[in-house]
Design a protein around this nucleic acid. Sequence first.
DNA 1: TTATTAATTGTAAAATCAACACTAAAAAAA
DNA 2: TTTTTTTAGTGTTGATTTTACAATTAATAA
Lengths: 235, 235
Amino acid sequence: MHKYSKQTRHLLAVDCIIFGFDGESLKILLIQRGFQPEKGNWSLMGGFVLQDESLDQASNRILKELTGLDGVYLEQLHTFGDTSRDPIERTISTAYFALIDIHKYEKQLNNDYHAEWFQLKRIPKLIFDHQDMVEAAKRRIRYKAALHPILFELLPDKFTIPQLQILYENVFNTTIDKRNFSKRVLATGLLIKLSEKDKAGSKRGAYYYQLNRQNYYAKFQAFLNFIPNPDTLLL
Amino acid sequence: MHKYSKQTRHLLAVDCIIFGFDGESLKILLIQRGFQPEKGNWSLMGGFVLQDESLDQASNRILKELTGLDGVYLEQLHTFGDTSRDPIERTISTAYFALIDIHKYEKQLNNDYHAEWFQLKRIPKLIFDHQDMVEAAKRRIRYKAALHPILFELLPDKFTIPQLQILYENVFNTTIDKRNFSKRVLATGLLIKLSEKDKAGSKRGAYYYQLNRQNYYAKFQAFLNFIPNPDTLLL
DNA sequence: TTATTAATTGTAAAATCAACACTAAAAAAA
DNA sequence: TTTTTTTAGTGTTGATTTTACAATTAATAA
């Protein structure tokens, strides 16, 4: 039956760190675990890898099952393989992180599961080594966003420059001069200015912008570099 | 016996991409696979993960068993989980990459196994998806080396500036002005100039330098940034 | 003594970055 | 209708960093 018959087989899981932005702060989505051990405690979205699915498929499936999310930005982060990370039985888990616009998926989430958004600064105690996974994901998103325009994945289709700035300030836990920020962002050539304004955020209203998808793929490498030492900043 | 008894268990492997530098070019270490399938074909160093070892332990063990290498720089790269990557039976493999000074381990290698160094530009056809792993590792090493001083791991304890430059030029497949290179490298404060010279490489001889280990850890973040768009460069 | 080879070093122009504050638009309040 | 309030939007200058570029030095070999 098994061709490499002498070898040990292992439980394999996938866990997803789902980052979301609501225009105000960066959050992650957690659920209360529905079974023992640690039933009722906060946990990342996770599940076991099935026989005939790749890791990428598994992470997409789990995301879909637990949140209804589909077609979102999802990237492998790291595989956590300590022997005692799950006290019940040894399980290796590959962590993925996702980036989504919170408002876009508000409805699906509220209904289906007991998922809840937590501000990055106020994450409750998590099960197993999920805290480590979140830390690694924070480091990775900062690292990557310092060099590539991935943060647009967290924004709605139309967004304003001030919204974008708030997002960057959240991710890097810093403040940025708005004159310099808009200069640099606009200089990338990645933004298309719309004639419509967002009147919700202010009296004057801020112009909406859209991602220039053509330039986006062309310039995915070679983006901004205005965050010094992304690794050393602590969120 | 198993607590999560309904779940499928999987074969788990570790594969190592071992980068080495001999003062002239960047190479990787390959072995001829000793068993079927693909017996005799070139392969990365790999092996199955045992019951009671972490992934990090597994990669270190395999590196040690197949090459005698111990205590080298080893970092997790990515987990490859496609269902058909191993034609015999589904196996998930976590790839690690290592950085070593070729001369330092020359003896161990020659004796023990049929391992062979290949220039990055002349890698033979590899088994399974090992080619993809090598590509991912090349991308990663370039990415990381553009921001962090990891390339020192590939050099002997004492090295010269011209050697260091050759290494950088190899990794990034580019040429660098030597005046600018030495200015920047020395400005990091990571190098200690020795009074001894290396007479092998030239008539005049070049001064040896050593890593300042204290500063190394302090400045591991925040290193050079003189390679534009590390991802886009093709080796 | 001369020729050869590679190591070492500096400067000036260009580009980029960082610091800094006022005006404009629109709604709300008076 | 006028005034107040709030946030959006925009430019310049000095400092720093980056890039481009070539002559001299040290040592061996001829």
